[in-house]
Design a protein around this nucleic acid. Structure first.
Length: 423
RNA sequence: GUGACCGUAGUUCAGCGGUAGAGCGUCGCGUUGUGGUCGCGAAUGUCGCGGGUUCGAAUCCCGUCGGUCACCCCA
């Protein structure tokens, strides 16, 4: 029994799985780097009002899932529940939007939502996100979507799907919203659903209950009521996706939980993850920057769930980061040998060779066992006779071959052996 | 936040009212300085935590904490 336990709903990654987590995260961010996005490091807490105004007071995320508290100066602080609002705040505050547009940024780190934990749903969740700000070019929408697709594909994932729709804009959405509300008013719905219809009628569309869905068959859909500009924009996005070879399914009833989304909206889901199947989602947000006090620039971005992407990889039997993480394992027998190998280890590491050593004066047999388990392809053994001969035994763990190598040639020999193994 | 199920060794799990078990892992041994296979042996548990019922509780009941599944929500 340990005295303390981690807070509820917080995932921890430790070896060996932490290696997979790190590898997943680097695949996700690499896709963004490959498309010219630059890293932005942001605070994990912000002024509560930023989320209330940016994300939307009526959203579940803001109204019942935020970790908010008063700091010692009496300010209301909130642990960030999502990434986009914070990026907007920083862009406006630091005038990153005053140069060439679009500004393309990526970020990574923990986010916090006080939800009831479940497999794949955590109170501290990890995301890798991108934002492209200051252009409403539909090619940029397509780029962002394609980056997400490539991020998942680069990990070897295949059992995922891209859901796509357009949520319209300030011109066409209000009229559609009224239309939908009128439609919903005539349906037989329970109180909670009626309430939702009043606050965010779009949300009713993706209700999972059959009894509700049956009544929604003839519900008006946003995509059928887009204004000319939105329709043209959406067509262009789809045309670009086709030319990039990205496939998707139309999801006219898809809804996002954050109020700022407009026009292009998308979600990646994985079919093996159960109820928490969303592994990434995003879209365009046209009014967000202005609502946070900046110029009225539009933007588009996504957040990819690092935790869930790892779960998706595991569900598909993929093993990210499984490559051996060591090149050489050193086995000393005796005090003199240890002194020599400790020094050799430092030199190997300085030469960029990943090296570990058998500590704790284990017997040769035990040390070899440790060497085997380390996964290192090469093992260097030094005992009394090697010390005397000023040499070392270098063993290949895969073939079992062992060579006597003069001490002065060791680093060169090892480098060459690793080089050979890589080719 | 609502409902249901689960919580036993490092790990996966069996035991379900009468002195705590197995597989895997860990450590040691199988003669002097060589791992993976095999054989033999050993260590490790306040049976999540707190109450209650009982002669006796890992086992039954209540609470609590944690996890899981669905709803909800979303990454």
């Amino acid at each position: 029994m340990s005295m303390f336990s981690a807070p509820k709903g917080v995932p921890e990654y430790f070896p060996p799985r932490s290696r997979a987590f790190v590898d997943v995260r680097s695949h996700l961010s690499r896709a963004a780097e490959l498309a010219g996005y630059s890293y932005i490091e942001l605070p994990v807490f912000e002024d509560t009002a930023l989320y209330v105004r940016g994300v939307g007071e009526s959203t579940d995320v803001v109204s019942k899932e935020m970790y908010s508290f008063e700091d010692r100066g009496g300010r209301s602080i909130t642990l960030r529940p999502e990434g986009t609002a914070g990026v907007m705040r920083s862009v406006v505050e630091n005038r990153l939007d005053k140069g060439q547009l679009p500004v393309k940024l990526w970020y990574s780190g923990p986010f916090f939502r006080a939800e009831r934990p479940q497999h794949g749903r955590y109170r501290q969740l990890q995301q890798v996100g991108v934002e492209a700000i200051g252009s409403d070019d539909p090619a940029l929408d397509a780029e962002v979507i394609a980056i997400g697709d490539e991020a998942f594909r680069s990990l070897g994932l295949t059992r995922y799907a891209l859901h796509l729709t357009s949520l319209g804009c300030a011109v066409c959405r209000p009229a559609y919203r009224a239309l939908l509300q009128a439609f919903l008013a005539d349906l037989d719905l329970d109180e909670a659903t009626r309430e939702r219809a009043a606050i965010n009628p779009l949300r009713v569309l993706d209700d999972k209950r059959e009894s509700v869905q049956n009544q929604l068959i003839d519900a008006p859909l946003m995509v059928d009521h887009l204004c000319e500009a939105c329709a043209t924009h959406y067509d262009a996005v789809r045309a670009h996706l086709v030319s990039m070879g990205v496939s998707w399914v139309e999801a006219p009833r898809m809804v996002r939980g954050l109020d700022y989304y407009t026009r292009t909206t998308f979600e990646f889901t994985h079919e093996l993850l159960g109820a928490q199947s969303g592994i990434g989602g995003g879209g365009r947000y046209d009014g967000l920057m202005a609502s946070v006090g900046g110029d009225d620039l539009s933007g588009i971005g996504f957040g990819l769930g690092t935790d869930r992407t790892l779960l998706a990889c595991e569900a598909e039997g993929l093993t990210p980061g499984a490559d051996a993480h060591l090149d050489v394992f050193l086995v000393p027998i005796g005090a003199e040998a240890k002194t020599r190998l400790v020094a050799l280890g430092a030199r190997l590491r300085a030469a960029g060779i990943r090296t570990d050593l058998a500590y704790g004066d284990r017997g040769l047999k035990g040390a070899m066992k440790a060497a085997d388990r380390s996964g290192a392809p090469l093992v260097v053994v030094v005992g009394d006779s090697e010390v005397e001969a000023d040499s070392a035994q270098v063993k290949s763990m895969s073939t079992g071959d062992q060579a006597t190598v003069p001490w002065t040639d060791l680093i060169t020999f090892i480098s060459a052996a690793i080089e050979r193994d890589l080719t």
